[in-house]
Design a binder for these strands. Sequence first.
DNA 1: GAATTATTGTGAAACGATTCACTTAAATAA
DNA 2: TTATTTAAGTGAATCGTTTCACAATAATTC
Lengths: 209, 209
Amino acid sequence: MILVKQSVLRLFQYRDFLIRSKKLGKESIFSDDFAENLGTTSIQVRKDFSIFGLSGNKRAGYKVDELLKQLNDVLKKDEKQKVIIVGAGNIGKALMKYDGFREGGLEIVALFDNDSKAQNEKAKPPVLALEQLYGFINENKIELGVIAVPYHSAQQVLDIMILAGIKGVMNFAPIALKAPKNFYINDMNLKIELESIAYFVKSLKKKRT
Amino acid sequence: MILVKQSVLRLFQYRDFLIRSKKLGKESIFSDDFAENLGTTSIQVRKDFSIFGLSGNKRAGYKVDELLKQLNDVLKKDEKQKVIIVGAGNIGKALMKYDGFREGGLEIVALFDNDSKAQNEKAKPPVLALEQLYGFINENKIELGVIAVPYHSAQQVLDIMILAGIKGVMNFAPIALKAPKNFYINDMNLKIELESIAYFVKSLKKKRT
DNA sequence: GAATTATTGTGAAACGATTCACTTAAATAA
DNA sequence: TTATTTAAGTGAATCGTTTCACAATAATTC
């Protein structure tokens, strides 16, 4: 399959907008509506749909229900997916409480932390010891993980996760991690993202001088 | 100026690696070292340097101190930059405590929240009422902000920020925001990023069948 | 029911980013 | 001091993504 990463990300955004529109009682919708809402163009929207074989009605746009069904199919939004978070510090805990994931069909089933003070087997979701990481992933057939540990232990943690059977991670450690080719890593380097905003803002100012 | 977004992001990563290498006592470094550490290629590294006029020594690589000085210059890492966070919920508070920003010369000077229970003028940084947002930005000439409020109030908050003089934001609300052309927004849509990882992982599996 | 209009759908062109293929020069070896 | 080696530097080619230009067709109007 062709890797059309940007398109896929937008499809997820279209899906969210579609769900919100449906809640507002809309029954049909146009490529312009998506464009307007997401800050892109209707051409981009239709091209994305075209790539994935999503179709509407010429002149009458897209039926909300129908498109949503097609989108769910393309995006494989079938059953819930279990996710674990490694690192129960500030970011790990914030993500645990983040509602967005649940809405997206992503269930956080456990956190893991070194620090015994953070651990709590009875909590929902439980916060377990790092020693249990390998076994938990293996037994529960977890495929998705979030890395929210300090940068010096991130690679170590990832290695365990890969060995245990995880297939993709979202990484908040501010460092590039090494993984095999068929493993999917999404780096969320908050430090660099914010630094780059500062940079681009400064550049914009210079421009106007 | 040409907008070479990807290159700029990598330059920040090179800088971080350079700083870590310096701490380890390294005095010179090669494009291959950067590539190896960041999971890219030495050609990419040299191309990035070339675009921004960063130069080394043929055969002997780059002097760590010298390159770092050049990089700081290119990336405008001069004075500290003040940042505010709007939304003192899970994510807002986690970001407040996140050390990475400080290391990157970014100082979080205040948080803002609707909820009077979250507010605390004496805290460091203070958590202020949303009513104070406009005045604070204006008086303190803040240019950078983080949006960590629920999606239904994100656009409202952004409008105030823009009006008050903010020039760029990092947005954690899972929605596309509208802003003028010369305003810089970096969307960190955690929900969609994690959903897309799930999607790509499923795709990888299919491939092997 | 024919003409008009609005919107989808898509191959081709343009653009931007990455990779290639080669040149240059400094350091080391002979 | 000359030859060899190693790594930087970069214009050109390639690749992936976005945008354009226009064809197709469903709905609406006349």
